[in-house]
Nucleic acid binder design. Sequence first.
DNA 1: CATCTGACACTAT
DNA 2: TATAGTGCCAGAT
Length: 118
Amino acid sequence: MFDQIHATIRRIPRGRVATYGEVAKAAGFAGAARQVVWALQTAQRLPWHRVVGAGGKILLPAEKGLEQRFRLAAEGVPFRGSRVDIDQCRYIFLKHDVPQTPAGETKISRSPHPQRRR
DNA sequence: CATCTGACACTAT
DNA sequence: TATAGTGCCAGAT
């Protein structure tokens, strides 16, 4: 299964992110979000930083969390406060490879109230 | 086979 | 919004 999860994570393009749950689901293990963690831990050379918690929360502890933020920010992932603006950069796993709107260009479904967030 | 363990998700408060 | 409790699943011991 790790293989599946790895492959799935590898599909996440630069500048986008996905939640553990989504990844698990896309990999064929709906509800096994925690297994994604395992996969991330064991595997190397993966865009691990593109995997965040539900709502765009960065779940890694302190140091690591900051690094993830850096990496994501470097890829152009928009942040909203301490979390990723997942509404804009969320990667939707497709059955077939179809290019998705790159983060920052056209906004996908945005919140009707883009007002200040903390 | 019984338990424990996680970078979780979801709901209620 | 932030925190706490409960449910979850697969692998390791």
